[in-house]
């Protein structure tokens, strides 16, 4: 039995910023470090964590049957094929939204805490009941956002709610970073984002076409192609979660090309 389980909510406010992708890849990375990890799909409306992990066809029971006591927890948990330290607790059908209460989420998470080192909760978008239920069961949170004004605005809203609900610590992951665009100042910079959100930065994830390929295959990037730019980022985030001191990548460094380097030189002169 794991004693000090970390229960982490992965949330964003806005949809489509990369919560589910992060949950899947973080789950794989932590499991690979030898940590027993449960990923809980709390996005009952738009469940797709099972899809990303390639486990859709193995689901028999879901969190719903566990709550209704129609099955035991271990019957509903789906173990990952390659990473046996990772298990998925699938979301029930969308009708669960009608009756699920914060206490139900707490009950499920309490059960998971008995056997896992990490419980990662893939949170639905928005700040309504689905989010509130998931938050009620969490201790800490990772807020995922993109370098876009609307995503940052929604993340800020969510951070306010997390703060008032004493979720601690709340850390930031900035996803879909495009070094070239950032260097050309066509995209919000890292400072622009952290200035507003005022959160410790757990990591950056680079924009990477392979994310989309791996999503369609049902094999998270971190499972095989650890050399892809995004996979490296996910692995680093997992290590930092474990307290390892891994320096952040410098997106300007990543965007080779003379233009960016020259501009950086200019910037360092000015400031």
């Amino acid at each position: 039995m794991a004693t000090d389980t970390r229960v982490i909510l992965i949330c964003s406010g806005k949809g489509g910023v990369g919560k589910t992708t992060l949950t899947a890849n973080l789950g794989i990375s932590l499991a690979r470090q030898g940590l027993t990890t449960a990923v809980l799909d709390a996005d009952f409306g738009l469940r797709n964590l099972d899809l990303l992990l390639g486990l859709e066809n193995r689901i028999v029971y879901t969190a719903q049957e566990v709550l209704e006591e129609e099955c035991r927890l271990d019957q509903a948990l789906v173990k990952h094929k390659q990473e046996s330290n990772l298990s998925l607790l699938p979301a029930g059908n969308p009708r669960m939204l009608d009756w699920l209460k914060p206490d139900d989420m707490k009950r499920i998470v309490d059960m998971l805490k008995e056997q896992f080192n990490y419980v990662l909760i893939d949170c639905p978008a928005g700040v309504e009941d689905g989010f509130k239920n998931a938050m009620a069961a969490s201790q800490e949170a990772i807020v995922v956002t993109n370098p876009e004004v609307s995503a940052v605005r929604d993340a800020d809203r969510v951070i306010g709610l997390l703060n008032t609900n004493s979720i601690k610590p709340v850390q930031l992951v900035l996803n879909r970073v495009r070094p070239k665009m950032m260097a050309n100042q066509e995209m919000l910079s890292i400072e622009d984002v952290t200035d507003i959100l005022a959160l410790p930065l757990l990591g950056l994830v680079l924009e990477d076409e392979q994310v989309i390929v791996s999503t369609n295959r049902g094999e998270p990037l971190t499972l095989n192609s650890v050399n892809s730019p995004a996979a490296k980022c996910y692995l680093n985030i997992a290590k930092r979660l474990q307290g390892e001191n891994i320096p952040l990548i410098d997106p300007l460094e990543e965007s080779s090309g003379f233009g960016a380097k020259f501009r950086r030189l200019m910037q360092t002169k000015i400031f």
Binding site: R153, D156, G160
Partner: peptide, 8 residues
């Protein structure tokens, strides 16, 4: 004291 965040 503290940041006043979006929606607050």
């Amino acid at each position: 004291q503290g940041t006043v965040r979006s929606g607050e």
